[in-house]
């Protein structure tokens, strides 16, 4: 009853329904940042409480000790190898990710478009792609290590095996989504099968490919970090799992934030590229 009365009172004062209130640009920024600020404050308070009880607590390191760790990892050369570890890790992880995602995208574009465009090929390949997409990639990681050794090949392959089937299936269905009218129209303009694929289907699938890649990046990071954790000598995933042995939360937490930030920037850049290159897709 009380709730009803309050609701009625709010309605009487506000007049408009809740769903019809839209925040201004400023309010939206503030409302968006608020949860982050709350999380940060909660962390600082919790960390302070724990450190007050036990100054050598490792679970919730203070902001200061995390900054010191960042300084040690990113700005000072490592005492053992003389390398700036964060940057070495970042470079090798990003190059693996780029290689894996790049190869996957290229395979997916070719197979997906052909599958979508040529019914004979689709009948031939589609069941195989579906079957492969059901194999859990992590389960064949040992096979990759056995066959390809512990080098870069195995890590990149895991990403490729992990995301390519999804990308192929997505692109195949995107190709099939292109209205039949367009394909007929192209033929009445004299297009051969090849020209239809190259000039009508492929260009329309590129922005869709970027969209699918953005969706698959989360899985790509997962496979990358998993592979690095098991067998590697540098890389963001490798470092996190290495310092875990010393409970070095002051290194792990900044690394996780850094990976998150990288993922965000890559996603944002792909979106910007796509909008700039394919303006017709976004109207």
């Amino acid at each position: 009853m009380a709730a009803l009365a309050t609701a009625a009172a709010i309605q009487a004062i506000a007049m408009k329904k809740l769903i019809n209130y839209t925040p201004s640009a400023w309010a939206r920024v503030c409302l968006g940042l608020l949860p982050f600020a709350v999380l940060l404050a909660a962390y600082i308070v919790a960390s302070d409480i724990r450190l007050a009880q036990n100054p050598s607590d490792k679970l919730l390191p203070s902001i200061g000790s995390m900054l010191a760790a960042v300084d040690r990892m990113a700005l000072q050369p490592s005492r053992r190898s003389g390398e700036y570890l964060l940057w070495v890790d970042t470079a090798s992880s990003l190059s693996r990710l780029a290689l894996g995602v790049g190869i996957s995208a290229a395979i997916a574009l070719v197979v997906g478009v052909l599958n979508g465009a040529v019914p004979l090929l689709r009948a031939n390949l589609s069941p195989l792609v579906r079957a492969i997409s059901l194999v859990p990639p992590m389960a064949i990681l040992p096979i990759l290590f056995i066959v390809m050794g512990l080098g870069e090949g195995a890590k990149v392959s895991l990403i490729v095996i992990g995301i390519t089937p999804f990308l192929i299936r997505d692109l195949q269905s995107r190709t099939l989504e292109i209205p039949a009218e367009q394909k007929i129209k192209a033929q009445t303009l004299g297009a051969s099968s090849w020209q239809l694929i190259v000039r009508i289907l492929l260009p329309q699938l590129l922005p869709r490919l970027i969209g699918s890649v953005r969706l698959s990046l989360g899985s790509a990071w997962l496979f990358l970090i998993a592979a690095e954790a098991i067998a590697s000598t540098e890389g963001l995933g490798y470092r996190i799992f290495l310092v875990r042995r010393y409970l070095a939360m002051d290194v792990i937490l900044p690394y996780v934030l850094w990976i998150t930030w990288l993922a965000f920037v890559i996603d944002w850049m792909l979106d910007r590229c796509s909008r700039r290159l394919y303006p017709w897709f976004y109207r």
Binding site: Q182, I184, K185, Q204, W280, F281
Partner: peptide, 19 residues
């Protein structure tokens, strides 16, 4: 029995290439 350049066509929609 397949579309070719002998016959032009205009549908109600989707007769133009969006890209």
């Amino acid at each position: 029995d397949e579309p070719d350049a002998e016959r032009g066509v205009v549908f109600q929609r989707y007769s133009v290439f969006p890209h």
